[in-house]
């Protein structure tokens, strides 16, 4: 069975539909990029998959023994976080909150897990630094390490490279790619960067007036991708 199976999903706010009749599935080890225009419902879709929001209709089923709270999530940064007094260690540690359950304090194993994930992300040297003093790329790696503490199976990333400079963006993409290829972590990523999406992903979900879901090879030859690639290319140039 697929890791995630989405059937006839309709999304929206206050009964107002943004997306309807969405069908797709994600297998373990996939790297799925969700692309589409602003306001097409990408973030809403991700929030619904995280059960932060109810679907208007349809269903999202988790398979392969994946529990809804075993998903690592990298949200877009909020204004509050940019001025938050907390060390890198404190923030990465909070990724273990699902493992912790009702226990009030973190265990030795959890602290070890935090260290491992910080080393993986190369942020161990900043452990005692304040989050708000880090660069944008370093902050994203902190949040990625936190997400990894929550999961070994599936990461949901909401525009992980927005606001980063090209060099840091490339590093971030490589980091995510290595998590996918070497660690076998399934990736679902919202992206505005269609060129990178086509380059790194195995599957594409294009949402908007027209919906496309399929392997990236099929996507690049589809008419919907051409139109989108042209428009995006013009905007980014």
């Amino acid at each position: 069975m697929a890791l995630i199976n989405v059937k006839d999903l309709s999304l929206g706010y206050d009964g107002h539909e943004i997306l309807t009749g969405l069908n797709f599935s994600v297998e373990a080890g996939n790297y799925l990029c969700i692309v589409g225009e602003n306001g097409s419902g990408k973030s809403t879709l991700m929030k619904t998959m995280l059960s932060l929001q109810r679907p208007l209709s349809g269903s999202i089923a988790f398979g392969d023994g994946l529990k809804p709270n075993e998903i690592g999530y990298l949200p877009q940064q909020t204004a509050v976080q940019k001025d938050f007094p907390a060390t890198v260690w404190e923030i990465v540690r909070s990724g273990c909150q699902a493992r912790m359950g009702r226990r009030p304090f973190y265990s030795k194993e959890e602290k070890q897990l935090v260290r491992e994930n910080m080393e993986k992300m190369g942020i161990m040297p900043f452990a005692r630094r304040c989050y708000r003093e880090l660069s944008g790329g370093q902050q994203q790696r902190v949040l990625l390490a936190r997400a990894l503490c929550a999961t070994r199976k599936l990461l949901l990333l909401d525009e992980p490279v927005s606001g980063l400079d090209p060099k840091v963006t490339a590093e971030m993409y490589q980091l995510i790619e290595s998590l996918n290829r070497q660690e076998g972590v399934t990736i679902i990523m919202i992206s505005h960067d269609i060129a990178a999406a086509v380059r790194y992903a195995t599957h594409i979900l294009h949402v908007g007036h027209q919906v496309f879901f399929g392997p990236v090879e099929e996507y690049v030859h589809s008419p919907i991708a051409r139109r989108f690639l042209d428009a995006e290319g013009g905007k980014q140039a």
Partner: peptide
């Protein structure tokens, strides 16, 4: 620790089942 988690990132906390 829960208060910290909910204060720093409510969406992440909810996604983690808090």
């Amino acid at each position: 620790h829960k208060i910290f988690a909910v204060t720093f990132d409510e969406d992440f906390a909810k996604a983690a089942g808090t």
